[in-house]
Simulated assay, not measured.
Amino acid sequence: MSKKKIVSIEDRIPKLKQARKKKANRRLIFYLSIFFILISIIVYLQSPLSHIHTIEVTGNLALSDDEVVEKTNLTTDTNIWMLNESKIKNELAKNPIIDSVEVNKKLPWTVEIQVNELKQVGYLKKDGFFYPILGNGKVLTKLKRETSNGSAPLLIGFNDESMLNKMTEQLKKLPQNIRNLISEIHWKPKDDNKKKIVLFMSDGYVVDGTIRNFAKNMKVYPSIVAQLDPDNKGIIHIGVGVYFESFEDNTEDKKITKTTAE
């Protein structure tokens, strides 16, 4: 018959004490780690490390980056974790030219503001100021500027609201790359053609046309210019027929004075 080893309580007590001590030490280390993590988080939140360092604005054309940032009230003293996305969206949505906004954190300290503007097709020049115009013909009178930023053509002489609406509707249909070539659009109504317009292009040409089917007619502008001598500027007629008339000819249209945007 085998003999069982008998361990006295006196022999086990030191081992039990050692096990309890190790367990207590592990528990202490765990609680201390939690404590220091919490302290580190508090210090981080109170330090400049948690402040916004960079604000990136994308998607804006009519509005400058500074104009967008100003409306958000964000500064380099703003804590990135205290960012109120809904409040920023609501503030920016008050601007009539902004359709929608997305606000995203890009850790560790960057905020990205993605702006989706309503399509601005031009500026209306009136009484020495420049007013943004949307594709639906709405003139943003509250956003008047002393200068034009050159991002859209100037509409000059459009004192008839119905003609202005027709013109902006055509501009909205026009491809962006062609619209960018237009510097100014003058409404020059005549007895036999109330919709007559004259355009000054950024490449030095003048376009004589009409509001009716303007977008369709202007789509051929790049192909017309490609066939012309770049050193011989003149008037491109895009009415019923399409033809070019050099500035060397003595024409009435040649006498139209170009209004500068500055």
Rank of each mutant, 00 (worst) to 15 (best):
Thr75Pro: 07
Thr76Ser: 14
Asp77Tyr: 03
Asp77Gly: 07
Ile80Gly: 02
Trp81Asn: 11
Trp81Ser: 05
Leu83Gly: 03
Asn84Thr: 03
Lys87Ile: 00
Lys87Met: 03
Lys87Ala: 07
Asn90Tyr: 04
Glu91Asn: 11
Glu91Phe: 00
Ile98Gly: 00
Asp99Thr: 04
Lys106Gln: 15
Lys106Arg: 13
Leu107Cys: 02
Pro108Asn: 11
Glu112His: 10
Ile113Gln: 01
Gln114Trp: 00
Gln114Thr: 06
Gln114Arg: 07
Asn116Ile: 08
Lys119Leu: 15
Gln120Trp: 06
Gly122Met: 10
Tyr123Trp: 15
Leu124Arg: 06
Lys125Ser: 08
Lys125Asn: 10
Gly128Gln: 08
Phe129Leu: 15
Phe130Ser: 05
Pro132Leu: 11
Ile133Trp: 00
Gly135Thr: 12
Gly135Lys: 09
Asn136Pro: 12
Gly137Leu: 04
Gly137Asp: 09
Lys138Trp: 04
Lys138Gly: 01
Lys138His: 10
Val139Asn: 02
Leu140Lys: 07
Leu140Glu: 08
Leu140Trp: 09
Arg145Cys: 02
Gly150Phe: 00
Ser151Pro: 02
Ala152Leu: 04
Ala152Asn: 03
Ala152Arg: 02
Leu155Thr: 01
Leu155Phe: 15
Ile156Ser: 01
Phe158Met: 04
Glu161Gly: 01
Ser162Met: 10
Met163Pro: 01
Met163Ser: 02
Asn165Asp: 11
Asn165Glu: 06
Thr168Gln: 10
Glu169Val: 01
Gln170Ser: 10
Leu171Pro: 01
Pro175Thr: 08
Gln176Ile: 11
Gln176Pro: 01
Ile178Pro: 02
Arg179Glu: 12
Leu181Lys: 14
Leu181Ile: 07
Ser183Met: 13
Ser183Ala: 14
Glu184Arg: 14
Glu184Asn: 15
Ile185Ala: 08
Ile185Trp: 01
Ile185Asn: 04
Trp187Met: 10
Trp187Ile: 11
Trp187Tyr: 10
Lys188Phe: 03
Pro189Ser: 05
Asp191Phe: 09
Asp191His: 10
Asp191Ala: 11
Asp192Gln: 12
Asp192Ala: 14
Asn193Leu: 15
Asn193Tyr: 13
Lys195Gln: 15
Phe200Ala: 08
